[in-house]
Design a binder for these strands. Structure first.
Lengths: 153, 153
DNA sequence: GAGATCTTGAATGGTTTCGTCGAGTATCTA
DNA sequence: TAGATACTCGACGAAACCATTCAAGATCTC
């Protein structure tokens, strides 16, 4: 039940932009270098995020991207839905990207109930979390000494 | 963040087998017909479930499949992990199918914390739910009148 | 022994994913 | 105004994956 690489890159790029949130823009090359994301692929992803109004861009010599809203207004659920579609593990319990499944009788599908539970749990987390949370965490982690083992939540 | 069709078919087949749990076996054709799953594909899936010891089989004229354990001992998390791998949305927070990601510094990855939260939520549900829960739900839904609207959890 | 059904390993075609490319457009600076 | 830089758009390609199928063999019951 994987988040796509595209989705992951989108979130990492937004986190990076969140770290530098302000009037200035960051160049794609800079984000790509820092986050080790292929530049041309990142171009495509940022363009899509611009379409979703998560970022805004400026062309030209001093061009680049920046967040289109404050980090605490950009919910992770919205980003993931925009970039890759439903959060729900099966289409028929998706509230925003409903897709009929092929089971014989959807109104009698036992699996649906459990999958709705999973969908609600995922949405419950991602609809609360924002880019600000990621930024805060990134700053925390940046400031902790090297060599720390796996952190715990 | 989709469950694959394979994973879904596996769970539906197990639910069906759970409905008829007992010493007798069900033929693949019967499960396929009832659940509208392509027979040859289902053969492959059941074989994999047999490898994971979720079902057992008997060959020959009276051949077929049945659950290898009581329905309330077959956890959905175990099934999904067997059939399609990690529950976690990103490999680097998977506890059972760890995969390094490509971010620059995993120990400083802000996204990991949120994705671990999501992983824990998904696992929290699926490690509690069993095939017995699906069977119980299936029986409930079967016994309710036609025409009922979307059920609620 | 025939027929029915599982078993194994491989194959196929379509789709998706990840990533790239070329050319165009816009903007800024010298 | 020209050149440089960076965004924008639409398309492309390889690889991987997914959903599904196939052929032949093994097993079991009647």
């Amino acid at each position: 039940m994987k988040l796509s690489v595209r989705g992951e890159y989108a979130l990492r790029a937004l986190t990076h932009l969140g770290l530098y949130y302000g009037p200035e823009v960051l160049r794609i090359q800079a984000i790509a270098d820092e986050q080790r994301i292929p530049k041309r692929f990142l171009e495509q992803i940022l363009n899509e995020l611009r379409n979703g109004r998560f970022v805004e861009s400026r062309r030209g010599v001093a061009g680049g991207y920046r967040l289109a809203a404050p980090p605490d207004k950009i919910f992770l659920a919205a980003v993931i839905r925009h970039v890759e579609g439903a959060l729900a593990p099966v289409g028929c319990v998706s509230e925003k990207f409903y897709e009929k499944c092929n089971c014989p009788d959807e109104s009698r599908c036992a699996l649906r109930a459990v999958m709705k539970e999973v969908r609600d749990a995922i949405a419950g987390i991602l609809e609360k979390r924002t880019v600000a949370d990621l930024v805060k965490k990134a700053v925390e982690l940046k400031n902790q000494p090297m060599g720390a083992d796996d952190f715990v939540i």
